[in-house]
């Protein structure tokens, strides 16, 4: 999930609020110029911008391997994938802008550390197999979350998600294909794949956010049609989909409590270490500081470029005005 622990505004009780809720309940899409409660607007801005920031920061862990991809084809696929992430960031920033916030404001919030992005991108990519595990697990988890978001009550977000989902499912398949190739390869390659699964499994489960009983913001978001499923529902779905894939690859999911439950028709599984999750969210994950430093460096180093283009545009405008 690319948006976690999104703080949700409270619903009001005016006539307008009631009509708005009825519209949502009837499944009518809300568009940028429609009236909406402030809480709804603010929740969406937080969620969409957090999602966009995740795409932007998400370029970094995979970008770390573009220059070291082990074949020309893998290099091209990985580069195309990271390019897609940047494109998703662009759609999402545009969707958030329809709610009355500028891209510069959102960028400022990311760079100052005020805005959050998904906890998953604060983990390091240490071997080539991580490009497989990230595509397979991280994009797999993201799809679980994003497919229902295609039906989100806010039109611009919903439409952005439809485009994003098409590309994400390709990403997940390419990640799985990297893993498949490793698992069919040498002993060293198989060990590399298993090691990547060991490191990415629990952080991937944490992407869905804390357990429903500890998730304070879910209920109102669900009433507003911003969120469609609970964290635990999505996490269960992800485990049920992913465990058979791991078995097919010949890999072992690093959870001693993982067991098929005949009664529920689902897998039982262990509890992620939520203290680790909250530490990462607070800024104490393995890469939080590196990720923010990289984004700040890109922004600061690029100031001359942005100022230069603005100066040129000003000169052009002055020239037009003078003519």
């Amino acid at each position: 999930m690319y948006a976690q622990l999104v703080e949700t505004g409270a619903a009001e009780t005016s006539e307008k609020d009631r009509e708005f809720q009825e519209k949502i309940d009837r499944g009518v899409r809300i568009e940028a110029n429609d009236w909406m409660p402030e809480g709804y607007r603010k929740t969406l801005i937080r969620q969409i911008s957090q999602h966009a920031h995740s795409e932007i920061v998400g370029q970094l862990p995979e970008g770390n391997w573009i220059t070291r991809a082990p074949s020309l084809q893998r290099k091209a696929i990985l580069l195309a994938k990271v390019q897609d992430e940047a494109g998703h960031g662009l759609y999402l920033y545009c969707a958030a802008e329809t709610l009355g916030i500028s891209r510069d404001e959102m960028t400022e919030q990311l760079l100052s550390g005020k805005a959050k992005y998904s906890s998953i991108f604060n983990y390091p990519t240490l071997t080539w197999a991580d490009m497989g595990a990230v595509g397979w697990l991280v994009d797999g988890a993201a799809i679980m979350n994003q497919v229902p978001l295609q039906r989100c009550s806010y039109g611009p977000y919903s439409r952005a998600m439809i485009r994003v989902c098409k590309e994400e499912s390709f990403h997940q398949r390419q990640g799985f294909d990297v893993m498949r190739q490793l698992c069919e390869g040498t002993e060293e390659q198989k060990a590399m794949a298993q090691d990547a699964l060991n490191r990415w499994w629990w952080p991937s489960l944490m992407m869905f956010g804390p357990s429903d009983k500890d998730s304070v913001h879910s209920e109102q978001s669900m009433r507003w049609g911003i969120k469609q499923n609970t964290n635990d529902e999505l996490r269960q779905k992800f485990v049920d989909q992913t465990v058979p894939q791991a078995e097919w690859l010949g890999l072992t999911v690093p959870d001693p409590e993982l067991k098929w439950n005949e009664e529920t028709g689902c897998y039982d599984f262990g509890e992620p270490d939520w203290s680790e999750f909250f530490e990462v969210i607070k800024g104490n994950g393995p890469c939080n500081k590196d990720r923010l430093a990289a984004r700040n460096k890109a922004w600061d180093d690029g100031a001359w470029y942005r100022d230069g283009l603005t100066a040129h545009a000003d000169k052009q405008n002055q020239q037009i005005a003078a003519e």
Binding site: L60, G63, L79, A80, Q83, A294, K297
Partner: peptide, 27 residues
């Protein structure tokens, strides 16, 4: 391709990745 994620604006991240892809394809 090394600029992907580190360029001065998002549009340049995308453009540099795009040129990198063309160049690797030509290679």
């Amino acid at each position: 391709a090394a600029w992907c994620g580190h360029a001065p604006v998002l549009e340049e991240d995308i453009a540099f990745a795009n040129m990198g892809l063309d160049l690797i394809g030509q290679t």
